[in-house]
Nucleic acid binder design. Structure first.
Lengths: 335, 335
DNA sequence: CTGTTAGCGCTTTCAC
DNA sequence: GTGAAAGCGCTAACAG
């Protein structure tokens, strides 16, 4: 790897001191215009750029955000990452992306690694295992070090930091309400992500919607993703639903296909709504009605909140929780 | 942001010099066991970790890989990123991820930014615009600086660097051959990505397969993603195909749905194969037969090749091109 | 106007 | 065995 030009070399070639060169590059009014011009000329010639490492070491600012995601082969998080990257870039920040694969150990390892890489702040969505184990010392440590951090989507109450979440409970309530309004009265609730806080909120919302109404709600937690289709097929056969709310996109997609297999017409015989508005929804047949979580928005917001915190580093900053609104996108799988 | 413990502080507290502490932490045999123990004890107590920035500045190694992707809301690249992140992490590397959104300008900007952030090397998939404009001075510059780099999937001949690609031509040829063998003779070739080198290879492969056979091949380039469904519907109606090869996953997925609309039975009336084995294929109805490009593999390989280059920094390294095999995954959309 | 100096946190050579 | 000193590339306070 060839070495890049440094201030030192420019200084030598121009017969100036390093600091004069440094100031000239910043167009410091202290320096004569003539010198400034000479310096810029040579700097341009060599395409000089300050070494980011040195600048960071000096300023303890890396202009880098650590992003910790549980998955990436999931349209929701991919979209969130897209929003994060875009917004970070707009503000001149880079992102170090780590994927925990839903593992607690990986998460801990990554948090430490990024912390010692001196990222300016963290954007985190918790792994499933972390939520199950309910351990979060690694975040308590960040908090103690006063490292700016925002959690999004998958969050915990135990850590007091900025949060950007979706109003899952209400979203779910509205979706079920819509199904009821369109005449459904036997609604299935299918999920692969039962252990996550978000799933719990969604279930609560659904329950709230049916409360004191003459509507049946049938919960169904899938055991394993691998046998999802068989499980759902069996569930569908054993009940006699007129609607299904998939608590994640996969559940909804698989439900649609299972209905095809059973010869149920959608939405005539059965209506389907899925959580998260990803690729599958747009390309299913019929196109799936969904609860859109605006993942991209979520990511962007997280970055905004974080950068705001980083750049104002206020001694007694009070963390806030932002709630991003969802919307019900009606397509062809509902009446 | 609270400051982290430094060697200096440990040294002061232990009444030792900085260098002694540094050596002790590395268990340098020069140092007495007793001192080593004392140092480790205090270091553990404070949970000391060397400041990565300082280490990097000294060693000019950041253990960071710059990753430049054209998109992320595309299962292929998401999967590749997954493979990249996983493999990088296995080798103790972090990744700085940038998404160009298929823009040339963004790509140039990111390459420069990452280069001045002293990444140890680059993993790149070119943006569509870069391929169209055929400009690559930004990579020539990296090459001049001898910065390790590997291009994957979307590559150009003009830059002589490591490459990891898929044998698109053969993959396509095999897929078409399969369709012919199963009795198809009027095959549509649908694509949304006509300008990419990969699409061209796929078209060539298809042509090679039908050469001197009594089989018709109908190419169809979509204008815009937004009206994909209408366009494909019209194309399907105007021809009388018995098979379609989608040159990207979206084309294939939309084709399937269009067939449903037209009342064509899949695979009885028409067979469909799609390129790239993503989510859509698994959740379409019927499940789509695909050409799997092993995106995750591709990403992993790219990292292996890159790290190998980084860690052996050989003056006269000769770049190589690795070809990752594809495979035809037969599901329900073909006979 | 320009230069000297110290220091960010670490590694490494060389003295003692 | 331990420590002083130089240096990675940069910034900034202070001298001149």
């Amino acid at each position: 790897m060839r070495k890049k030009v440094t201030l030192k070399q420019l200084a030598k070639e121009l017969n100036l001191s390093i600091s004069t060169v440094s100031k000239s590059l910043k167009n410091d009014p202290e320096i004569s215009q003539k010198t400034i011009n000479r310096v810029h000329e040579l700097a341009d010639f060599y395409n000089y750029k300050p070494n980011a490492l040195a600048v960071s070491l000096k300023s303890s600012r890396t202009k880098t955000i650590g992003v910790i995601l549980p998955e990436i082969l999931n349209h929701f998080f991919a979209k969130a990452l897209y929003g994060i990257e875009k917004e970070a870039s707009n503000h001149g920040y880079k992102i170090l992306t780590c994927i925990t694969n839903e593992s607690y150990d990986k998460e801990v390892e990554y948090v430490e690694m990024l912390n010692y890489s001196s990222v300016d702040g963290f954007i985190v969505a918790l792994s499933e295992e972390t939520q199950v184990l309910n351990k979060f010392d690694h975040y308590a440590a960040l908090k103690r070090d006063k490292v700016p951090m925002v959690m999004f989507d998958r969050v915990i109450d135990e850590i007091d930091c900025d949060k950007v979440i979706v109003d899952d409970e209400n979203a779910s309530k509205n979706a079920v309400q819509y199904l009821i309004d369109s005449g459904c009265s036997k609604i299935g609730l299918i999920t692969t992500i039962g252990d996550l806080s978000v799933a719990k909120h969604r279930i609560q919302g659904a329950k709230a919607a049916v409360a004191d109404k003459d509507v049946e709600l049938h919960e169904f937690k899938l055991k394993g993703a691998s046998r999802a289709e068989e499980e759902i097929l069996a569930f569908l056969k054993s009940t006699d639903l007129d609607a299904v709310l998939g608590l994640d996109e996969t559940s909804a997609a698989v439900t649609i296909n299972s209905c095809h297999r059973l010869g149920y017409k959608i939405p005539k015989d059965i209506s389907v709504i899925g959580f998260t508005d990803g690729l599958l929804s747009k390309h299913s047949f019929p196109k799936l009605s969904t609860v859109s979580q605006h993942a991209e928005d979520l990511g962007e917001r997280a970055v905004q909140v974080l950068i705001n915190n980083i750049e104002n580093d206020d001694e007694k900053y009070v963390p806030k929780t932002q709630i991003v609104k969802t919307s019900l996108i009606l397509r062809d799988s509902t009446n």
